[in-house]
Simulated assay, not measured.
Amino acid sequence: MSKTDVKLEGIYPILATPFKDNGEVDENSLRELVRFQLHAKVDGIALFGMASEMYTLLDEEKARIAEIVVDEVKGRVPLVFGSGHTGLETAVQLSKKAEKQGADALMVLPPYMAKPDGTRLYDYFAAIAKAVTIPIMIQDAPLASGVNMPAPLLARLSKEFENISYVKVEAPPTSLKVTDVLQQSDGRLTVFGGMNGMYFYEELGRGAVGTMPACEFPEVCVKIYQAFKAGDLDTARRTFYQYLPFMRIGTIPGFAMSVHKEVLKAGGVIESAYVRNPNAPMDDLLRREVMDTLKDLDLLALRWREARNERQ
């Protein structure tokens, strides 16, 4: 299958970037994190999203991360690279580079510094679509970017550019936006959810084909998705609402990245929970609140040391 024929659906966690306590990228933990995702039977992996702290990474660090992830995955699942930027020329350059580095598809955030009007938004995504051959997923995340992607504009882009074929809907209320996008695009656009899976069950019910959450609970999302696909709505709904408090606490502004990493560290998936400025490390009270949401629940990340030893 060529990359232009790649069909994205299911669970595509946004891979965190593990750092050592001194702030350097931890390559060993990164490899272990990828193995953790594959063990959870994810359908794909996304790099350089907001949950990757992509806005803190140097160009050479991103190149090395891409190299490591491509090496670990070895083509077993598709890879989606975030390549948005606050300027058109840089976004085009990043997108072309991602395609060369092994991306099967791109996740593109709109410009987020100078807020663009409709014409500038169209020109930005049109330029990226013309520059690459792989599928493009537009990230509609106004809470992060400050830019709303109107459904008519998304529909127009999908009609005029064949490789603009996906949208990650993170514009609350996401479930209503999913319906709007699908209706206005006449089925040309395939929709994923985001916002750490907080509305995943409702999004599936409205026609979304998957979600792209943070990466510390992949097996939970896989279970919800597989149950829903199999028509076992009771299991999908029950599992979703069991873990919803944990998903919600993983969206706290300023501390979300720390939440993701503290859970991964607690079970031995990564060695350090270090986050780069402007993200803040959590204190003991928040750590206790996070773990309270997981009481009586079986999270793979928290028992990864044992699961890894059994696998070996």
Results as ranks from 00 to 15, higher is better:
125 F>E: 05
123 D>S: 12
111 P>C: 10
131 A>I: 03
121 L>P: 07
114 A>N: 14
127 A>K: 08
134 I>E: 00
121 L>Q: 10
119 T>W: 12
116 P>E: 09
126 A>N: 02
128 I>L: 04
130 K>N: 06
121 L>Y: 09
112 Y>E: 05
137 M>T: 15
113 M>W: 14
104 D>I: 02
118 G>I: 09
116 P>C: 08
134 I>W: 01
117 D>H: 10
113 M>K: 14
145 S>P: 12
125 F>T: 09
111 P>G: 07
115 K>Q: 11
127 A>E: 05
133 T>M: 08
130 K>R: 11
145 S>L: 11
116 P>R: 05
133 T>P: 02
111 P>T: 06
106 L>G: 04
145 S>N: 11
134 I>Q: 02
119 T>D: 11
106 L>R: 04
131 A>F: 02
114 A>Q: 14
106 L>K: 03
131 A>T: 05
120 R>G: 07
121 L>F: 10
107 M>R: 07
122 Y>W: 15
133 T>V: 07
107 M>L: 15
124 Y>M: 06
103 A>M: 01
104 D>R: 01
112 Y>N: 08
109 L>D: 04
141 A>K: 05
144 A>P: 03
105 A>M: 05
140 D>L: 15
108 V>H: 09
126 A>M: 02
116 P>D: 04
117 D>Q: 12
125 F>Q: 02
143 L>G: 11
110 P>V: 00
130 K>C: 03
104 D>A: 06
121 L>K: 04
125 F>G: 07
107 M>G: 07
109 L>N: 10
124 Y>A: 05
115 K>H: 12
124 Y>R: 03
142 P>V: 08
112 Y>H: 09
116 P>K: 06
145 S>M: 11
114 A>T: 13
146 G>N: 09
123 D>M: 10
138 I>H: 11
108 V>S: 10
107 M>D: 07
129 A>W: 00
131 A>G: 07
104 D>E: 06
105 A>H: 02
120 R>L: 14
140 D>S: 15
113 M>P: 00
110 P>L: 00
136 I>K: 01
128 I>G: 01
136 I>G: 01
133 T>F: 03
124 Y>F: 13
141 A>C: 15
118 G>D: 10
108 V>C: 11
133 T>Y: 05
129 A>L: 04
141 A>W: 13
145 S>C: 14
126 A>H: 04
138 I>K: 08
123 D>Y: 06
124 Y>H: 09
129 A>D: 06
112 Y>W: 12
122 Y>H: 14
128 I>Y: 00
122 Y>P: 04
119 T>L: 15
136 I>Y: 01
133 T>K: 13
139 Q>M: 13
135 P>T: 03
143 L>T: 12
132 V>H: 00
131 A>L: 05
112 Y>S: 04
120 R>F: 11
112 Y>R: 00
114 A>F: 14
113 M>D: 13
146 G>K: 07
117 D>T: 08
143 L>P: 12
131 A>E: 04
142 P>C: 06
136 I>N: 01
136 I>H: 01
129 A>P: 09
126 A>S: 10
143 L>V: 08
110 P>Q: 00
119 T>P: 10
128 I>N: 01
128 I>V: 12
126 A>F: 05
